[in-house]
């Protein structure tokens, strides 16, 4: 083992679930020299990896501040401490991962998918403010009147996966479809 063992252990102990992920943070900076550096230093200090900075120098917010969008990569468990460090520097955080879909889940629907209007099923899931269907595969080897299967990949905001699953369950019950739910192993 030649790598930094602290990080390797952290990943190992958590079953690999705390691998670094991309996060987007929107900041507003005062139009003063040195502000951008002050905002970026805590990110580096907290061990996050800076991916890109979008610094709209020409634009000012209605409050006369400069919007900056920062993409960074860090383990999800460390993201909060990055935000805390930014706040400690007096940086104003407008959004943190607001538009990002933090969790994914895969479910299978089985039954009369065509007869129960699959596109309506998908649209009903999409109507949730916190979930979106990213991918759909349908297999109906017996034709449209036979039992078919669909695999759905659903993206949800962080912490909303259980709510999305509940929505799928409710829809399936209404349409008399079977749901094959993903198994969450460990915690």
């Amino acid at each position: 083992m030649t790598e930094g063992t602290a990080d390797a252990e952290a990943v190992e102990a958590d079953g690999g679930r705390d691998r670094p992920q991309a996060h987007t943070v929107r900041l507003e900076l005062a139009d003063e020299p040195g502000q951008l550096l002050a905002a970026l230093r805590p990110i580096a200090d907290e061990g996050a990896n800076l991916l890109s900075i979008f610094h709209e120098r020409g634009h000012l917010t209605p409050r006369g501040r400069i919007p900056v969008e920062v993409d960074l990569k860090c383990p999800p468990s460390r993201f909060e401490s990055v935000l805390d460090a930014l706040r400690a520097e007096g940086v104003s955080i407008v959004e943190a991962d607001a538009e990002q879909y933090g969790e994914h889940l895969m479910v299978m629907l089985v039954g009369d998918l065509v007869g129960t209007d699959l596109s309506d099923t998908v649209m009903s899931i999409e109507s949730s403010p916190t979930a979106t269907v990213e991918d759909l595969s349908l297999s109906a080897p017996g034709g449209p009147d036979d039992v078919a299967s669909a695999r759905l990949r659903i993206a949800t905001q962080a912490g909303e996966a259980e709510a999305a699953l509940k929505l799928v369950r409710t829809l399936a019950e209404e349409k008399q479809l079977h749901v094959v739910e993903p198994l969450t192993e460990g915690r």
Binding site: M106, V107, M108, V110, S137, S139, A140, P141, V147, A148, S149, A150, R151, R153, V180, E181, P182, L183
Partner: peptide, 30 residues
């Protein structure tokens, strides 16, 4: 067809039982 679709995504279906101090659940899971 459900097992085919699962395999395409690197998944499989198993009849999984779960027991906790509060609940018991058995069903096919991805």
């Amino acid at each position: 067809s459900a097992l085919d679709l699962a395999a395409e995504a690197g998944r499989t279906v198993r009849l999984v039982g779960e027991a906790t101090p509060e609940s018991v659940r058995v069903g096919p899971r991805l």
